[in-house]
């Protein structure tokens, strides 16, 4: 099957969908899902470039001549592990954020933060700097 560049294009569409979810959704879990999609599509890009037409899995065996490129596979094993490590840390943060703010919507958290800052500043103004 000759797919030329279409495979890469599909991967890019996927990547951008993931990115869109990350930057447009306010829900923290959804952001992480988007991040996951984004990472998986980069992984897919690597695996795609490693594919050789008519090749087989890179485990040496009698009777096979053409193997797909093993290097991207190695790299992506590492990348997957890095991805899950990041996700675990992020989820722990989400749990703590929910504990601290009572919501997992980024927009609401930002709102609470802004209110806090404003309160702090107006408070400081009330005490006032006693200009001697």
């Amino acid at each position: 099957m000759d797919v030329g560049l279409y495979n890469y294009w599909a991967v890019i569409v996927l990547m951008m969908t993931g990115l869109y979810v990350v930057i447009s959704r306010s829900n923290l879990i959804k952001k992480l899902i988007g991040l996951n999609v984004f990472q998986v599509s980069v992984i897919m890009f690597y695996i795609s470039i490693g594919k050789v037409k008519g090749g087989t899995a890179p485990i040496l065996e009698e009777g096979f001549e053409v193997y797909s490129n093993p290097v991207p596979h190695v790299l992506m094993l590492t990348a997957i592990v890095v991805g899950v490590a990041t996700l675990a840390l992020a989820l722990a943060l989400v749990v703590r954020l929910h504990g601290a703010y009572g919501t997992i919507e980024e927009d609401e958290i930002a709102e609470i933060d802004t209110r806090e800052t404003n309160a702090l500043e107006s408070n400081a103004r009330e005490i006032g700097a006693p200009m001697s």
């Binding site: 695996i47 594919k51 899995a57 094993l77």
Partner: peptide, 10 residues
Amino acid sequence: MDAVDVAFTE
């Protein structure tokens, strides 16, 4: 795409 180890891990 022949990446058996990656598939397993994913």
